[in-house]
Design a protein around this nucleic acid. Structure first.
Lengths: 406, 406
DNA sequence: CAATCTTATTAAAAAAAATTAATAAATATC
DNA sequence: GATATTTATTAATTTTTTTTAATAAGATTG
């Protein structure tokens, strides 16, 4: 049963009824963020009395959204019951769209990953056919799950480029007609849909199930063909006015003649990105350098090939990645000076080279940022790796539906 | 009478008593931020009934912190009474410390500027004498006001450089011994004291009484001898981990050989700051350029002299300021790409050249930032000008004392 | 300018929530 | 292993708050 709690009628109500809705939302959101809890904990959290919370919880259980998970250990004394969101009363779909493949995943209300399909082949093009193909892949994933369609409450979809999540518009892909892309997807799949910028979704995944512990101001760097950033400021994703924040690829830190995708020269991306890595690698091969990675056609070399080679101790690949790390370090130093973050996370495909990238970045950051500011900031590798995007997409729909529509 | 409301005992209380304290805080904070309000407005804001709010307001009036300001206009129907903070029940002192002078001001609980002394001569040096002198100036300002000393509830003090506002440490000035500077000032002046970074305080002043209307994500640039930034993110000042956020002066955007104050080369500040302006001006005079500004000793030329010359149509000064604007524009473009803000404010001494600086910056920003992102952002000159710092200092103490100690 | 309509304030009644007390269940200690 | 202690749950009572109604004050309109 699609729970009543996802129909919002809080505008009509007044007084006590309104307050009750408000408290219910607070309890749900506590369950959503902090996990399961006892009545006593909820009393502290809500500043309400035990009887009041007990009645509310009883109502929520009757509604099906909350479940009694039975007794739990105690520090001495009667063991309390613990309550939390009923895991199978709702599921959330997340799709991470990359250039050559997609990752699809499904989580339940308790954030548990139920099913994931990684590296599903797919070519992202800005065409109607490519869009249909994407929808078809999602439909087929849904069909393969054992979950009833009406239990899937929403879809989160990550795209690279500029995304305005609040309007649902994508400006880089599938911007065919007047309607926002999220509306198109909703019509096509019959699922409430939220778009998100890929880097920001990865950041959110990492904030929630990754390397972030207590930190409240965190930068996540998505180091892929291009560069992206998701920032968590005061425990919230930062969007800026229209969701375009985090464009770090086009910082003009170099004086070269390479024309960037954005049309300008000297962008960080032109010297420190997956795209730059490929270019440098081909260049090196042409000028006689040797590598364990050999392909007949140079045009066929993919970023992933070089990453794999580096992870298999190919000297040329390792050297080039170190060069990129050194340059990225300059950009990261700049960001540290501006944000004074507690933590900077290195994520995205290039980060899967681990220490090969991490160490050069670290020493460049030490060299280029102000020492007092820099000593405040930790630098860590992503923990979720390839799965950060899917997890972020799933968790973001969940968050939004729980926040806005209880 | 120093009100009871400034003694915090909310930890001891439970249940209803605790809740009442909480609601009172909410009402006070509403008055503090949004200004005066009627009972009906407060009911909406707090989701409480009219009788409840009426009792609370009556209590607050009895306590002396709130005042009934009488009837106010209506849209038809009986005219409601309007309530707000009693302006003369508390005052806040703000000190803006510059290199060659200080500005001191005093506001009341209603944010009204009661007294201000601008351009009080003072030489900021990192010595114990300089510190004593500063204290003496503050004491003398207090003596000159008609306000009883015990009605002055706190002091806000702005310094340039790295300030950790939560610990009260200043790392660039007056860092003599183990104790944080804020503690030293408190002992010396017998006033609760908060330190703040100068750019951030100016930003806060501008956010509250300046050019900011509805915008929630705003960057304020302090363009002075050096460069600083204060960021408002989601309606709050952004500090970063230790309050060091906003170091924009050391973005490595240039490839020159000038050694910056920070010890590195190529910093934005080496080519686009008041310090750079003076250097360029002297250089130009040496190579034969003419200017209406003539001083016997070149060493005597101050930034303010060049600013004044520009405002009096001196061609050389205007040209140099345009050069600086063009370069600043590159840095601002970078910030726009990262923050996607709604508004960027140009403040600090250099901004008092108005359009001479504004226009070159604007065109550089258009040239260097991503167009979709850039078209989102307004660029405006500071409205408060020289007073931004004092206002910010006053308003920040007020905010802190109202928030944490009601 | 009187009648009607809005809105605010005050007072009385009804509902809701917090206390308090009582009971139950588990743990720690002697 | 029995008793005391700690903590949770449930029930009864008291307090608080909301709701409803009544009254007052001012604005609008014919």
């Amino acid at each position: 049963m699609k729970s009543d709690f996802f129909d919002d009628n809080s505008d009509i109500l007044t007084g006590v009824a309104y307050k009750n809705i408000h408290i219910r939302k607070k309890i749900i959101s506590y369950f959503a963020d902090a996990g399961n809890a006892t009545i006593a904990e909820l009393c502290k959290e809500t500043n309400l009395s035990v009887p009041k919370v007990t009645t509310l919880i009883t109502e929520l259980i009757a509604g099906g959204l909350v479940k009694d998970f039975g007794k739990v250990g105690s520090t001495g004394g009667r063991r309390p019951n613990i309550y939390g969101l009923a895991p199978d009363s709702g599921f959330f779909l997340g799709v991470d769209v990359k250039h050559n493949h997609i990752n699809i995943g499904l989580i339940d209300l308790q954030k548990k990953l139920i099913k994931i399909s990684k590296d599903v082949p797919y070519n992202l093009n800005n065409t109607a056919e490519s869009f249909s193909e994407l929808c078809e892949l999602i439909r087929s994933f849904i069909k393969d799950t054992a979950i009833a369609k009406d239990k899937i409450l929403g879809l989160g979809l990550n795209l690279s480029g500029r995304i305005n999540y609040s309007t649902g518009y994508s400006y880089s892909f599938f911007h065919f007609n007047e309607d926002p892309l999220s509306k198109l997807l909703e019509k096509e799949l019959n699922l409430k849909t939220y778009l998100e910028n890929d880097s920001r979704a990865m950041a959110y995944g990492e904030f929630n199930c990754g390397v972030v512990k207590e930190e409240k101001n965190v930068l996540f760097l998505n180091l892929d063909y291009g560069l992206g950033m998701g920032a968590m400021i005061n425990n919230e994703l930062y969007y800026g006015k229209s969701g375009f924040a985090g464009e770090i690829g086009h910082m003009p830190l170099f004086s070269n003649e390479t024309i960037c995708q954005c049309g300008k020269k000297g962008c960080l991306e032109t010297e420190a990105s997956g795209r730059a890595l490929i270019a440098m690698f081909k260049e090196k091969l042409l000028t006689g350098s040797s590598s364990s990675l050999k392909k007949e056609a140079h045009d066929d070399i993919q970023m992933q090939d070089i990453i794999n080679a580096a992870n298999n101790d190919d000297v040329l690949s390792i050297e080039l990645i170190a060069t990129i790390g050194e340059k990225l370090g300059r950009g990261i130093a700049l960001l540290i000076n501006i944000f004074n973050p507690e933590l900077v996370i290195l994520g995205g495909a290039l980060a899967s080279t681990g220490e090969h990238l991490h160490l050069p970045i670290k020493s460049a950051v030490n060299k280029f940022s102000l020492s007092l500011v820099n000593s405040d900031t930790q630098l860590k590798l992503s923990k979720l790796g390839e799965e950060a995007g899917v997890m972020g997409a799933c968790l973001l729909v969940r968050k939004r539906l729980l926040e806005y529509s209880i």
